[in-house]
Amino acid sequence: MTALATLPPWLMLLVAALLVLGSTLTLLGAFGLLHLKSFYDRLHAPTLGTSWGTAAILLASMLCWSWVQDRVFVHELVIGLCVMVTTPVTLMLLGRAALHRDRAEGQPDIPPAPDRGEQD
Protein backbone atom coordinates (compact mmCIF):
# COMPACT_ATOMS: atom_id res chain seq x y z
CA MET A 1 0.00 0.00 0.00
CA THR A 2 2.77 2.44 -0.75
CA ALA A 3 1.65 4.22 -3.88
CA LEU A 4 -2.02 3.54 -3.32
CA ALA A 5 -2.06 5.61 -0.12
CA THR A 6 -1.77 8.78 -2.19
CA LEU A 7 -5.15 8.28 -3.87
CA PRO A 8 -7.94 10.66 -2.86
CA PRO A 9 -10.73 9.05 -0.80
CA TRP A 10 -13.38 9.08 -3.55
CA LEU A 11 -11.05 7.31 -5.94
CA MET A 12 -10.19 4.75 -3.25
CA LEU A 13 -13.87 3.97 -2.78
CA LEU A 14 -14.42 3.68 -6.53
CA VAL A 15 -11.43 1.39 -6.99
CA ALA A 16 -12.49 -0.74 -4.03
CA ALA A 17 -16.01 -1.11 -5.45
CA LEU A 18 -14.68 -2.06 -8.89
CA LEU A 19 -12.30 -4.62 -7.41
CA VAL A 20 -15.04 -6.23 -5.35
CA LEU A 21 -17.42 -6.30 -8.35
CA GLY A 22 -14.86 -7.80 -10.70
CA SER A 23 -13.55 -10.46 -8.38
CA THR A 24 -17.04 -11.45 -7.26
CA LEU A 25 -18.17 -11.92 -10.86
CA THR A 26 -15.09 -13.99 -11.67
CA LEU A 27 -15.66 -16.10 -8.57
CA LEU A 28 -19.32 -16.60 -9.51
CA GLY A 29 -18.23 -17.69 -12.97
CA ALA A 30 -15.80 -20.22 -11.53
CA PHE A 31 -18.45 -21.39 -9.09
CA GLY A 32 -20.83 -21.92 -12.01
CA LEU A 33 -18.14 -23.78 -13.88
CA LEU A 34 -17.98 -26.27 -11.04
CA HIS A 35 -21.63 -26.30 -10.17
CA LEU A 36 -23.56 -26.49 -13.46
CA LYS A 37 -24.61 -29.86 -14.76
CA SER A 38 -24.07 -29.97 -18.52
CA PHE A 39 -21.10 -28.85 -20.60
CA TYR A 40 -23.13 -26.41 -22.66
CA ASP A 41 -24.33 -24.70 -19.48
CA ARG A 42 -20.79 -24.53 -18.21
CA LEU A 43 -19.74 -22.85 -21.45
CA HIS A 44 -21.58 -19.73 -20.24
CA ALA A 45 -19.97 -19.56 -16.82
CA PRO A 46 -16.53 -18.12 -17.69
CA THR A 47 -18.07 -15.30 -19.73
CA LEU A 48 -18.96 -13.64 -16.43
CA GLY A 49 -15.26 -13.45 -15.65
CA THR A 50 -14.20 -12.43 -19.12
CA SER A 51 -16.76 -9.66 -19.63
CA TRP A 52 -17.38 -7.54 -16.56
CA GLY A 53 -15.05 -9.41 -14.24
CA THR A 54 -12.08 -8.47 -16.38
CA ALA A 55 -13.45 -5.06 -17.31
CA ALA A 56 -13.99 -3.97 -13.70
CA ILE A 57 -10.56 -5.05 -12.50
CA LEU A 58 -8.86 -3.52 -15.53
CA LEU A 59 -10.75 -0.28 -14.94
CA ALA A 60 -9.68 -0.24 -11.29
CA SER A 61 -6.07 -0.84 -12.24
CA MET A 62 -6.24 1.81 -14.94
CA LEU A 63 -7.65 4.44 -12.55
CA CYS A 64 -5.02 3.69 -9.92
CA TRP A 65 -2.04 3.77 -12.23
CA SER A 66 -3.23 6.86 -14.02
CA TRP A 67 -3.43 8.68 -10.71
CA VAL A 68 -0.17 7.38 -9.26
CA GLN A 69 1.98 7.86 -12.34
CA ASP A 70 0.28 11.10 -13.28
CA ARG A 71 -0.22 10.18 -16.90
CA VAL A 72 -3.02 8.36 -18.63
CA PHE A 73 -2.25 4.69 -18.31
CA VAL A 74 -3.75 2.76 -21.17
CA HIS A 75 -1.84 -0.51 -20.99
CA GLU A 76 -4.93 -2.15 -19.58
CA LEU A 77 -6.85 -1.36 -22.73
CA VAL A 78 -4.54 -3.70 -24.61
CA ILE A 79 -5.27 -6.56 -22.21
CA GLY A 80 -8.97 -5.72 -22.34
CA LEU A 81 -8.97 -5.76 -26.12
CA CYS A 82 -6.99 -8.98 -26.13
CA VAL A 83 -9.44 -10.73 -23.80
CA MET A 84 -12.41 -9.25 -25.65
CA VAL A 85 -11.21 -10.57 -29.01
CA THR A 86 -9.75 -13.90 -27.92
CA THR A 87 -12.53 -15.19 -25.66
CA PRO A 88 -15.08 -15.58 -28.47
CA VAL A 89 -12.55 -17.50 -30.54
CA THR A 90 -11.82 -19.84 -27.66
CA LEU A 91 -15.42 -20.41 -26.70
CA MET A 92 -16.62 -20.85 -30.29
CA LEU A 93 -13.92 -23.41 -30.99
CA LEU A 94 -14.67 -25.24 -27.77
CA GLY A 95 -18.40 -25.20 -28.48
CA ARG A 96 -17.83 -26.58 -31.94
CA ALA A 97 -15.43 -29.20 -30.67
CA ALA A 98 -17.93 -30.30 -28.04
CA LEU A 99 -20.76 -30.49 -30.60
CA HIS A 100 -18.55 -32.43 -32.96
CA ARG A 101 -17.54 -34.93 -30.31
CA ASP A 102 -21.06 -35.31 -28.96
CA ARG A 103 -22.41 -35.97 -32.43
CA ALA A 104 -19.66 -38.46 -33.18
CA GLU A 105 -20.54 -40.32 -30.02
CA GLY A 106 -24.26 -40.11 -30.70
CA GLN A 107 -25.19 -38.31 -27.47
CA PRO A 108 -28.89 -37.57 -27.05
CA ASP A 109 -30.36 -34.04 -26.95
CA ILE A 110 -27.80 -32.63 -29.35
CA PRO A 111 -29.09 -30.77 -32.41
CA PRO A 112 -28.17 -32.62 -35.59
CA ALA A 113 -25.56 -31.39 -38.00
CA PRO A 114 -26.85 -29.28 -40.90
CA ASP A 115 -27.88 -31.69 -43.58
CA ARG A 116 -25.31 -31.51 -46.35
CA GLY A 117 -23.60 -34.85 -46.60
CA GLU A 118 -20.45 -34.18 -44.65
CA GLN A 119 -19.65 -31.83 -41.87
CA ASP A 120 -16.35 -30.10 -41.44
Binding site: S23, T26, L33, R42, A45, G49, I57, S61
Partner: peptide, 30 residues
Amino acid sequence: RAQDRVLALDALYIAIMLLFLVTGLRLGTP
Protein backbone atom coordinates in the same frame (compact mmCIF):
# COMPACT_ATOMS: atom_id res chain seq x y z
CA ARG B 1 -14.67 -34.88 -20.58
CA ALA B 2 -11.79 -33.30 -22.43
CA GLN B 3 -13.74 -30.17 -23.42
CA ASP B 4 -14.57 -29.53 -19.77
CA ARG B 5 -10.90 -29.60 -18.92
CA VAL B 6 -9.98 -27.18 -21.70
CA LEU B 7 -12.77 -24.80 -20.68
CA ALA B 8 -11.58 -24.94 -17.08
CA LEU B 9 -8.02 -24.24 -18.22
CA ASP B 10 -9.22 -21.12 -19.99
CA ALA B 11 -11.09 -19.93 -16.90
CA LEU B 12 -7.99 -20.66 -14.82
CA TYR B 13 -5.87 -18.49 -17.10
CA ILE B 14 -8.27 -15.58 -16.77
CA ALA B 15 -8.46 -15.88 -12.99
CA ILE B 16 -4.66 -16.01 -12.65
CA MET B 17 -4.25 -13.04 -14.98
CA LEU B 18 -6.67 -10.97 -12.89
CA LEU B 19 -4.89 -12.12 -9.73
CA PHE B 20 -1.62 -10.82 -11.16
CA LEU B 21 -3.21 -7.46 -11.91
CA VAL B 22 -4.64 -7.12 -8.39
CA THR B 23 -1.37 -8.21 -6.79
CA GLY B 24 0.52 -5.71 -8.92
CA LEU B 25 -1.89 -3.03 -7.76
CA ARG B 26 -1.33 -3.97 -4.14
CA LEU B 27 2.45 -4.12 -4.34
CA GLY B 28 2.55 -0.95 -6.39
CA THR B 29 4.70 -2.37 -9.18
CA PRO B 30 3.65 -2.08 -12.81
